[in-house]
Design a protein around this nucleic acid. Structure first.
Length: 299
DNA sequence: AAGACGAAAGTGGTTGA
DNA sequence: TCAACAACTTTCGTCTT
């Protein structure tokens, strides 16, 4: 029932939070929208309260901007005299220079639009989107983007953010929504890893099992069985250096047959992103390693 | 008729000289 | 930069249910 927080992953296909321990879907994760502080007296309320919107990494200037209006009126609506109007003109110009005319900021501005667009297409949770924006921001600070494609780094940032938070996502899924090819995105991704020194949890077949289990509408029991099989297989060395998705596919297939929760190889292959042939070779391999017999009743 | 099987050739990525 | 290599894919004919 209760899941340790580090075992919870987000399934981008369905927009649900899932526990990787049991495979169950956590439908009501309550998000507390209130203030994190409490005021016991009116004075405290004033001192603790902060003015303005919270910092938002998705805004190119973190959301702290106060924009100077183009209207030549003061706050009450009276028009300004000649001197003041000139002064405002200078201020506006200065603000534009500092905010948008810096190439970094313009770059970031475009990038964040892209991050927004792709994230919503992938159904990413807001935390992942923010993470991607932060990663991109760091990439700009390190000058990684100069002379390279923005989209490439946007895709790489999103992918990295997802990997960092253990969202089961593939590079293909991200690449689908940008014009750059996988190779270029992968290169940018590796660059990000190296330069930003971000450590990423290894791709775990368990995450793929959970994700595929949801796509296939498997019974919780079957998903648990598949995870168990995959873990055992890993312990005896099956699937080392192989695509974790393929191990997931094999484990799921075996679990399905054992639990009488039948799915075709084709369906499982599609859900895990491998082909039937790969699924077959992996599941044979697992059966050999674990000495599982799929048809104990017959023959 | 659908699904499972596996051989053979092809593809894209990694490694090591 | 290139060739060798492993993992995986595509394709397709055959077998099983």
């Amino acid at each position: 029932m209760d899941c340790p927080p580090d075992k919870i992953i987000f399934d981008s296909e369905r927009g649900e939070y899932i526990c990787t321990e049991t495979g169950e879907v956590l439908e009501d994760r309550v998000v507390d929208q209130g203030a994190e502080w409490r005021a016991y007296t009116p004075e405290e309320k004033i001192t603790k309260s902060r003015v303005g919107a919270p910092l938002d990494p998705l805004m190119h200037d973190m959301g702290i901007s106060t924009i100077i209006d183009w209207k030549d009126n003061d706050a009450i609506g009276n028009s300004l005299d000649e001197n003041k109007r000139k002064k405002m003109m200078r201020l506006r110009k200065w603000q534009l220079r500092t905010n948008l005319e810096s190439s970094h900021d313009r770059n970031l501005f475009r990038a964040i639009n892209e991050i927004e667009r792709i994230s919503s297409l992938l159904n990413l949770p807001k935390v992942a989107k923010n993470e991607a924006a932060l990663i991109y921001r760091k990439a700009i600070e390190k000058d990684l983007t100069r002379g390279r494609s923005i989209d490439e780094f946007v895709a790489a940032s999103i992918y990295l953010a997802c990997r960092k938070m253990r969202l089961a996502i593939t590079l293909e899924e991200v690449a689908r929504y940008v014009k750059n090819n996988k190779k270029d995105i992968a290169r940018a991704y590796r660059l990000l890893l190296n330069v930003l020194k971000i450590k990423v949890p290894l791709n775990d077949s368990r995450d793929y099992i959970i994700k595929a289990g949801n796509i296939l509408n498997l019974k919780t029991e079957t998903v648990r069985k598949a995870i168990e099989i995959a873990e055992k297989a890993k312990k005896v060395g099956v699937g080392i250096g192989k695509d974790p998705g393929s191990l997931a596919a094999g484990a799921i297939y075996i679990a399905c047959v054992l639990n009488d929760d039948s799915r075709t190889q084709r369906d499982i292959a599609v859900a895990t992103g491998v082909t039937e042939v790969t699924l077959r070779s992996r599941y044979k391999e697992i059966m050999r390693a674990l000495k599982i017999n799929l048809t104990p009743s017959s023959s």
